[in-house]
Amino acid sequence: MVCRSVLLRSVAAAVLVASVSACSLWGGRAAKPVAAELGPNVAVLGVRQAWTARVGKIELPLELHVNGNVVTLASSDGVVAALDAKTGSDVWRAMLGEPLSTGPGSDGKTAAVVTRANALVALESGREKWRQQLPAQVFTPPLVAGGRVFVLSSDRSVAAYDGATGRRLWTQQRPGEPLVLRQAGVLLALGDTLVVGLSGRMVGMNPNTGVTQWELPLASPRGTNDVERLVELVGRVSRVGDSVCARAFQASVGCVNTARGAVAWTQVASGSEGIHGDDRAVFGTEGNGVVTAWSRVDGSRLWSMDRYKHRKLTAPLLLGRSIVFGDDSGTVHLVSRDDGAPLNRISTDGSGIAAAPAVASDTLVVVSRNGSVYGFRPD
């Protein structure tokens, strides 16, 4: 017997889609562990709320896209908004009137989302430019780069569309395990290379043709059944020059050197959210709420901290001396990059933080599951 919240058959994609959930061996939901007490907040680093804004409820894979001082995001019911990070006011807002399966990708001019009916929709200044029907479900926000829109679908196909007309330029499909995650994968531009996460491998493609240029494993399928063999790379990723670091779902964290076409290192790690970092370190939140730092050079563990154990944490953001992440109580935590010591914590509306925090125009931007958007600045 399989817990229904873990496995969902996608008719359109003809695949099984796995989502993150805790199920007991008997098919029911396991009891949730009690979260560690936080204790009193000692604000070592002063932070103030600068503004708030609203979109609809968020129950989709969302990444806050930052272009200059503009942050683009979307709600599950079809609201797509570009906000000025200085004020929180709308640069533009579109109400598509249909539910979405992904948040937006944006290059600052064109934004693209995918609806639950598998339509890829391109917007410019809040107006629909074009739409194209896709053959499968999509959970990774589209990548808008180089005048094109790239899509990673749940059938492990990758496709490119002309950003001006929506004409499909090419498509490539790879075989793989029958399960995929119902959350955002890896899809980014790196110079003249399109970098895609396919199963547990990071793949470099020619963005003009889709031809594979290199392929590097961060994790391999293991186990005796489809659930145990599930392995996918998840967003967000940390890129510094030719170094790209990513997490393989519930398996590992690792870095690759794209110039040499080689895996720099991998370390066993049991988490489901992406990572962030700089040229010195990579930071991640594990599935049990432990926060860990690894050396970017060789993957050695720098420190690990369990103060937030059994809280469901977002992927982190490295911001100056702080690592910033949210939890399922709607609290935003700031801890020291050097040792994980708490620097401050901020409350929101209590509905849970919906996406990894982002920074734009010296403003920390956070969005809740209920669709409240917050801008915070240092005191």
Rank of each mutant, 00 (worst) to 15 (best):
Leu7Asn: 03
Arg9Phe: 15
Ser10His: 13
Leu16Phe: 13
Val17Gly: 08
Ser19Ala: 15
Cys23Phe: 03
Ser24Lys: 14
Leu38Ile: 11
Leu38Ala: 11
Pro40Lys: 06
Ala43Gln: 11
Ala43Ser: 12
Gly46Ala: 13
Trp51Phe: 10
Thr52Ser: 08
Ala53Asn: 07
Lys57Pro: 15
Ile58Trp: 08
Gly68Ser: 07
Leu73Ser: 02
Val80Asn: 02
Val80Gln: 01
Asp90Ile: 11
Ala94Cys: 09
Gly97Pro: 04
Leu100Gln: 00
Pro104Gln: 01
Gly105Lys: 05
Arg116Gly: 14
Asn118Trp: 06
Leu120Arg: 04
Ser125Gln: 15
Gly126Ser: 05
Lys129Gln: 14
Val144Lys: 09
Phe150Gln: 04
Val151Pro: 00
Ser157Gln: 09
Asp162Lys: 03
Thr165Asn: 05
Arg168Glu: 11
Arg168Asn: 04
Gln183Phe: 06
Thr193Asn: 03
Val195Gln: 02
Gly204Tyr: 01
Pro207Lys: 06
Trp214Ala: 10
Leu218Tyr: 05
Arg222Lys: 05
Thr224Trp: 07
Glu228Lys: 07
Arg236Asp: 09
Arg236Gly: 08
Arg239Phe: 00
Val240Ala: 11
Asp242Phe: 10
Val244Pro: 02
Gln250Trp: 12
Cys255Gln: 00
Val256Glu: 05
Val256Ala: 13
Ser270Lys: 03
Glu273Thr: 12
Glu273Arg: 15
Val282Phe: 07
Gly287Lys: 06
Val290His: 07
Ala293Ile: 09
Ala293Lys: 01
Ala293Phe: 09
Ser295Arg: 00
Ser295Asn: 03
Ser295Glu: 11
Val297Trp: 04
Ser304Gln: 13
Met305Leu: 13
Lys309Cys: 09
Leu317Val: 05
Leu318Glu: 09
Gly320Asn: 10
Ser322Asn: 08
Ile323Ala: 02
Val332Pro: 10
Ser336Met: 03
Asp338Leu: 11
Asn344Thr: 14
Ile346His: 04
Gly350Ile: 08
Gly350Arg: 04
Ala355Arg: 02
Pro357Met: 04
Thr363Cys: 13
Arg377Pro: 04
